[in-house]
Each structure stands twice: as C-alpha cells, then as structure tokens.
C-alpha cells in the first residue's frame, strides 16, 4: 500500500519535473500565428487597414479584434489566403482593389522639403533638404503615405506597366461549345 503510493508519487514527481523542464526548454516565443498571418500580408506598411503597419494588423487578426478583409493591397486573394489559414469565411474586400502602383515625384515641382522622406515607411525615398527627392521604384510599396505630407502635391501614383520581364502567361481559356 505504502510502496504503491510511493511509486505513484515518485512517478508524478518525475513526470511533473519533465513537463516543467520541457515547458521552459521548448517555450515558444511570440505568437506563431501572428508570424504566419504577417507572412501573408503584403508588407506595404500603408496603414489602410487602420493599424500602424502590417505587424499590428496581424496581431489584431490573431486576437480576433480585426476582420480579415481590411487589407486593400493584399486584394481578394489575400483575404482568401487569410481565410484559409484561419479557417474563417471568405469575405468581400472592404475597399476597391487597385492595380499595383508606385509613387513618382515630379522633378520640376519638388522643393526638397524632406517631408515625404520622413513619411515613407520603407525608406524608398532618397534626398536631402533643398535637394531633389527621388523614389526608388523597386522599393516603393505603393502605400501612398507620402502623398498627404507633400506641400506642393508633386507626388503622383503611377500604375506599374506590363513589360516583357513581368508579363505572365494567361490562364488557358476553355471554349464552351454547344452540345450537339
């Protein structure tokens, strides 16, 4: 009787210690779900979802505080991917989907005020005070955050044109024929 109790107690202590050790040793830092969600977001850091950047939005989605259809740059496909990941219903995007754009500075109007440089979340604008600013097109995410601060409205959004390099083969269209 005593020995049985002792064995059980010993077992409980050993297993408890093992579990305790494992919980410290294999502790997961951060929320892995947030990282997965963030991986699906387009990282434009535009704030169109109402959160200051993609990471906060991902956190809000993970906590269930935000809907999955708030990201216009991600588009319908982004919503679909998020729905797949989270097992939620696919919803219509709460904004209009736009083709991918980049910002372009009109060189004749820019006064070199540096306000857009400070606004750019991804450091895609180069320039100095009273010097012409230039947007590095490859790094521009098209977030439009540089538009409001510009005092002379010299920044325009331009749709990225289709070239031989970014052209895609189209989905083969199946002809629908009338049954004989």
């Amino acid at each position: 009787m005593i020995s049985a109790l002792a064995i059980m107690a010993l077992g409980a202590i050993i297993l408890g210690a093992a579990l305790g050790f494992a919980s410290i040793k294999f502790k997961v830092h951060g929320n892995p779900l947030v990282e997965k969600i963030e991986g699906l977001l387009p990282q434009t850091q535009c704030g169109q979802c109402g959160f200051p950047g993609c990471h906060p939005y991902a956190e809000a989605i993970a906590k269930g505080e935000a809907d999955i259809n708030l990201c216009p740059p991600g588009g319908e496909e982004g919503v679909r991917k998020l729905a797949d990941l989270l097992g939620r219903e696919v919803k219509a995007l709460n904004a209009e989907e736009k083709p991918k754009q980049v910002a372009v500075i009109d060189e004749n109007t820019c006064i070199g005020c540096t306000l857009c440089i400070q606004a750019c979340p991804v450091d895609a604008i180069v320039g100095a005070a009273k010097q012409l600013h230039i947007i590095i097109a490859q790094q521009c995410t098209g977030c439009e955050l540089c538009l409001p601060p510009c005092p002379v409205e010299c920044i325009a959004m331009v749709t990225i044109p289709e070239t031989v390099d970014n052209w895609k083969w189209k989905y083969p269209v199946t002809e629908i024929r009338k049954a004989a």
Binding site: E38, G53, P121, V122, D123, Q139, W167, W169
Partner: peptide, 29 residues
C-alpha cells in the same frame, strides 16, 4: 497550363521577396 503556373509562381516569388525587403526596411526604419 504549366507556363501559366510557372509565371504565376515567379510573380508570387517576386512579390514575396519585395514584401520581405519592405518588411526589413520598415523594421530597420
């Protein structure tokens, strides 16, 4: 169909690389 799939995968690859770069620059900023 295969050409379509390949060019879609390449486009996605380019996009995800751009997103990764944008994220790194945002975090660095």
């Amino acid at each position: 169909y295969f050409r379509f799939a390949k060019s879609e995968i390449w486009a996605r690859e380019r996009e995800s690389q751009a997103a990764e770069g944008a994220k790194n620059r945002f975090e660095f900023k």
